[in-house]
Write a protein that binds this DNA or RNA. Structure first.
Lengths: 219, 219, 219, 219
DNA sequence: GATGAATGAGGATTCATTCAT
DNA sequence: AATGAATGAATCCTCATTCAT
């Protein structure tokens, strides 16, 4: 076997272990505050020896950062990527909000991680804020939104979104809650009442499709 | 000196020590997550011996609960108490939002504690949610607000409020930001544009008064 | 009981525990290299809980420094203190060398600690070097010693002394070995042959006295 | 290519890797206590994978022993080998002392390793002690040295030598310090003052030669 | 009631060593 | 032979809690 081949096998394995550690940390992290997560829990969840953890991460912090980074990547691929195909900023905004909240419904682990660190952990927080800001500014530029204070609008969108997610995770069961939240936000941004409704409730294949969208399998 | 008098002096002292411990815990808590707060920090801040702490609280949890309870009390006295004098639910809502945010501007310790545990710690969370719900329902009943989904409206009010507070604590400097947020929320609840503005910006003595409102001195 | 009295009791106890930790560390340290000494061994030797150690010393280094400091103190009181009563620098030097080596014979723990860190650990090393230097310079000034290179003389005295100590600790059994070493060093420093012998072998009460000189009891 | 040739190439390579590991361990060891040297540091210094280390040494101890053995070999070849050409035991002794100290001046790594384990590590310690003892006994036998206690003389020679080396490594800069030490020791052993000086300072080609004597390249 | 020394369970981290590729 | 991923025992350190004074 060639050295390069051997190396690439080693690398692949290394990458797999690293991913499984991140995935384990992510699952543990879904259930408790960041400071309460112990390395013991992570390695137990990953079914890996204690020392192995330290072959991949120097500290507990580091793995949590990696979780945030992985989620951020995920999000860029799943949510914001779809946006680019939609021209209307209002429709894009609605789509993103709905995706977010539906995702939390399907996968409560995901939801709790977002609620817990969506505004704190480094790369994740930026990804979210950036996505919202981009759409908002495009909407304003194109006359789609009427907004007097942009910062206030962002606080409203993010705050409402996160709080709604928490409500969902707390057991709120209306299946069209994501759509109602999207509609409410669109109206707040100055979109006409009727139009807001039709945009927020329009059929999205990515949401109705019968797939079990599951982040655990991504890393 | 009469025994009863001595006793009451003892009680007063006991109460003072307890308060100073809660205040110390509160100040420490403003700077870090709940799980990261150590008893060492609290007793150092309170300048009290380790054993003394355990004369007042059985566990670390207990003092944190007491902090939330004390804040909740505070809040009932300062914010919601003033509401009862105002008839119009819209005006009441605006007043509460502005008080909240101005309070965070004046006292960032207070702000951080609210942001950190406003939605988690037991009695505090209820106090806030209850206050908002009461005003919202009154507004709906009196035809002041147009709301199709009450839960969504609550998520919007609380979420936007907390996110705005975070923005302020992060260094956002517009001095009328609380008013802009209040206006935005009123409009979202269906209050007429112009009226929303005048209500949100009306002069509030409790805000302009030249008092140094300081929670530290209350407990 | 008065507060001050209570405090002093507390202090006394504190001092006792600290001393017992230093003594334990010293005993452990006699048997292995500094880097090989674990806190577990120290607390086992001191019969104290793990946490107690950290109430007194922040790190392992700190307790080792304290051991060196305590030894240095000891040495100032026992060896150099006696020197001051002797006028002749040659006699002083001989006395110190003999004390050193006899001490190692009586208490091999002490000997090993000196051999191991006598030239490394901060305050101890200085105490020894300083004592030797002082006597040497006095002897030169008073025409008692003929020395062309002072640094070389110091290296000779310290080096020979430590190596002789190691020989003793290794099981060398001549009971007058300390005296022979003292005589050899005096001759090297230029003292007349006969005189060197009589000085090195003169009766020293502090050495013949039937006391069980035991450092363990000092700290 | 013949199998035997291939085998010998393999052996040569094996020997080279082994040497580079010993050399790496030696360099690391120059900077810290034996117990503080980690395998990680050694393999990093040797730029070799972890597993490779264990193809050559079973344990960490083993490589340290190998370092001592290699040094011992070196020493036999460089220092004692030259002695055999010199007839006069006093001149031989002086030559060895000078070589020792000059070597430490040229290569402080070497010096530190000697100071650190010259008296502890198995084969090295014996080589040194043996060399000194041989010369000393020859000198006594030939009436060159006047020594009453042989053990004391050995302690003096080794102790003074090591301490002088430490002084040099600590930054002492007299370039003829090795010669002064050699002279001092000769005089102590009973060699006539003047003769001691001329022997200790006689020109030694092996010291003045413009070669960069460097142990790193030997293993 | 106040004090602070002592405790020990729990969690973080290091590092020598094994082993499959 | 060389590699480096995986292991887990050993060690360090923190901190909530107890208790005698």
């Amino acid at each position: 076997m060639q050295p390069s081949q051997r190396a690439s096998i080693g690398l692949a394995k290394r990458e797999r272990t690293r991913s499984s550690l991140i995935a384990a940390a992510y699952r543990v992290f879904a259930h408790k505050e960041a400071d309460a997560v112990t390395i013991d829990e992570i390695i137990a969840e990953a079914a890996v020896a204690r020392g192995t953890f330290y072959n991949y991460f120097q500290t507990r912090e580091e793995v949590l950062t990696a979780v945030a980074a992985a989620l951020s990547d995920e999000m860029n691929h799943s949510i914001w990527a779809q946006s680019t195909e939609i021209e209307d900023p209002a429709a894009r905004m609605a789509m993103a909000i709905r995706q977010f909240l539906h995702q939390a419904m399907r996968d409560s682990n995901w939801g709790w991680v977002i609620v817990r660190c969506g505004l704190v952990a480094a790369p994740l927080s930026e990804t979210i804020t950036m996505g919202v800001t981009t759409d908002l500014e495009a909407g304003i530029r194109m006359g789609r939104f009427q907004v007097t204070n942009q910062q206030a609008a962002i606080d409203l969108i993010l705050g409402t979104g996160l709080m709604a997610m928490r409500t969902i995770l707390g057991g709120h069961l209306e299946t069209d809650y994501p759509e109602q939240i999207a509609e409410l936000i669109l109206k707040t941004l100055g979109v006409d009442k009727k139009e807001a409704h039709s945009i927020a409730f329009q059929v999205l294949e990515s949401l109705t499709a019968d797939r079990t969208y599951c982040y655990e399998h991504k890393f």
